[in-house]
């Protein structure tokens, strides 16, 4: 099974979508088949493996933030479940009150 998700560094615990991947898609994460609960837009991230609350999130082999909740393998990793170790991230709400950054929720509706 080819995967639309890219691993940037062996040390990473996230994978990056190289195209928009629809909710319900079965994807292979290093031999384990995971069904995506939500749409994952191009260049958004999913968990490569289970990430514990408080664990450092790594991309490019470097820390990009800290998990604010437990994140399951295959789950969308974004502003709703990780935070910066420096300054808070600013995101806007859509007109319907949804966080526009976490537009994967659209696919779940």
């Amino acid at each position: 099974m080819t995967t639309p998700f890219l691993l940037l560094s062996d040390e990473d615990n996230v994978l990056v979508a190289m195209r928009h991947v629809k909710a319900g898609s079965s994807i292979d994460i290093e031999g384990i088949t995971v069904s995506l609960a939500l749409d994952i837009p191009l260049a958004h991230k999913i968990a490569r493996r289970d990430i514990a609350e408080g664990e450092t999130v790594r991309k490019y082999g470097m820390p990009i933030g800290v998990a604010t909740a437990a994140i399951a393998q295959g789950e969308h990793v974004h502003v709703h479940n990780i935070r910066s170790a420096y300054t808070p991230t600013y995101a806007l709400q859509d007109a319907d009150g949804r966080d526009s950054a976490v537009n994967a929720k659209v696919g779940a509706a």
């Binding site: 990056v16 979508a17 837009p41 191009l42 260049a43 958004h44 991230k45 999130v57 470097m62 820390p63 990009i64 933030g65 990793v77 974004h78 502003v79 990780i82 935070r83 910066s84 170790a85 420096y86 300054t87 991230t89 600013y90 995101a91 806007l92 526009s100 950054a101 537009n103």
Partner: peptide, 9 residues
């Protein structure tokens, strides 16, 4: 953030 970036780092 809409484009998939989660944090400044």
């Amino acid at each position: 953030a809409t484009g998939g970036l989660s944090t400044i780092e």
